[in-house]
Amino acid sequence: MLTKRVIPCLDVRDGRIVKGVQFSDLRDAGDPATRAAAYQRQGADEIVILDVSATLEARQAALETVRAVRRVLSIPLTVGGGLRTCADAEQLLAAGADKVAVNTAAVDRPAILTELAEAFGVQCTVLAIDAARVADGAAQWEVVTHAGQTRTGRSAPDWASEGVDRGAGEILLTSWDRDGSRSGYDLMLIDAVARRVSVPIIASGGAASADHMVAALQCGADAVLAASVFHDGEFTVGDIKQTLADAGTAVRR
């Protein structure tokens, strides 16, 4: 049977991994290729690189990061961040990405999802959604873009559903409220989106323990993504998978 995936995420700026709460207060967390290789040895099922560079020049440098990671990585690599066109995607895929994640560009111009799916296949096309609760406690989420600075007013579950109809083969679902909070994934958000789409969902934002990951997988996520938990060395991917297996979740061992 298909196993659940554990995915370390590398937020990369200027060729280095950075970490911080909601992308402010960024701190250096190492070399991407070295980290990616280490996570692979620990049993990571996939690696996600999100390029959080602000400038065009830095984005070109990100291609070199993707090449360096690809050279050492024999598991799937998803790359996102700043991607606007099919030509951008083609560059990332040629550099060694297996999938590309598109976020703000898809909100601005949803047709890009169809273009990516037609050019490279739905299995290459990941829709990244940053979702924030409309009000504390309310089971309603709106899509936010531009690193959280723009609230679109668009319902996140509706957008996920539309994105899949347009060609997304996977949803990378980040809770903007929980990101960096260490309070666990937004389980209601995962459940709300899982009810609307049949493609895999990668849960993101808020993970601080294996228990958080078990909960997300039980709520309909097919994969769990985390960054700081792994970068800080609190847990290895192997530790997390052991706990998942003990909880009865099918994982690759």
Partner: peptide
């Protein structure tokens, strides 16, 4: 099924 199948299978 969940389609596409994305991930590790035995």
């Amino acid at each position: 099924c969940c389609v596409p199948q994305f991930g590790w299978n035995e």
